[in-house]
Nucleic acid binder design. Structure first.
Lengths: 109, 109
DNA sequence: TTGACATGTAACCAGTTGGTTACCTATATT
DNA sequence: AATATAGGTAACCAACTGGTTACATGTCAA
C-alpha cells in the first residue's frame, strides 16, 4: 500500500534480495569475478531454474549487472545499492563517525 | 533447505525484517526513545493488530527489545543485529578501511 | 466488581516466494 | 541441416506475508 519515499526507492528490494542465504552466497561468488548462469548453478544444490529465479531477484534489486555474450549471460556485482543500505542504517546513530569507528574496532577484533 | 552458517545465524531474519517500509519507520521512531504499542500504532495508518505483527517480526530478528510495565509493553531499539549486517556486507570490499572512508565521503556529500 | 484500556491471538484472504518438472528459444557446433 | 548447449518461462505446489475483523486476556480505575 505504501509506495515508499524517493530516497529509499527500491531499498525494499535490496533488503529482501539479501534476506536469502543462496542469494548472499551468489553475491560472494560474484565478488571474485563475473560468472555465467551455469557456473553459478553448479555451485548450488538447487535446480538451474531456481537459480535463474534468484538471479532475477538480484537483478531486480540492482545488486548485479548482466552482460550478454552469445548464448552466455555473465553476471557481475554492482556495489551501488549497498550504499543505499548503509545510508539507511545510519539512523542507528546520530554520531555516524563514532559509529564507523566502533564498527571498525568491532570488525578488527 | 540450507540451514545457514554459524556466523550468519538469524541474519536472514534481520534482512527480511528490514525489507519493509513500515518496520523501518518503526525503528526510526524507536531510535528517538522507547514506545508502547499504541504510541507506535497511532503513527501508522494500518490497524493495531497489523502493527503487532510487525513488532513480532522485529522482535524475532532481535532488532527490538521489550520491557513489560503493567499493561504496557515498551519497545526499544537493539543495535546489535545491525553489526551482523555490516559484518556480512564487508565482503563487498576487501579493503574495508577504504570502503568506510569512501562511504563516509558519500554520506557527507 | 464492573468497566475501560493495552495488547495479543485466531481465522481468513490475496499476493509473493522458493522450489520443482516440463517445455521453449536462441546460439554454437558438426 | 541436425544436434547440443545456455538459459528463460510456464504451471504447479506449499509456505509465508501483510492486511483485515472478531475475540480473548490481563491490568488499571471507579
Amino acid at each position: 500500500m505504501d509506495k515508499g519515499e524517493v530516497l529509499s526507492y527500491k531499498i525494499n528490494d535490496v533488503f529482501s534480495a539479501l534476506a536469502d542465504e543462496h542469494r548472499r552466497n551468489m553475491l560472494v561468488m560474484l565478488s571474485k569475478g563475473s560468472k555465467n548462469v551455469n557456473e553459478i548453478a553448479s555451485a548450488f544444490k538447487i535446480s538451474r531454474p531456481a537459480v535463474s529465479k534468484h538471479l532475477k531477484i538480484l537483478k531486480r534489486s540492482n545488486l548485479v549487472a548482466i552482460k550478454k555474450e552469445g548464448r552466455n549471460r555473465y553476471f557481475s556485482l554492482n556495489p551501488k545499492p549497498v550504499k543505499e543500505v548503509f545510508d539507511w542504517l545510519k539512523f542507528y546513530d546520530k554520531s555516524w563517525d563514532r559509529k564507523l569507528q566502533s564498527l571498525k574496532n568491532y570488525l578488527e577484533k
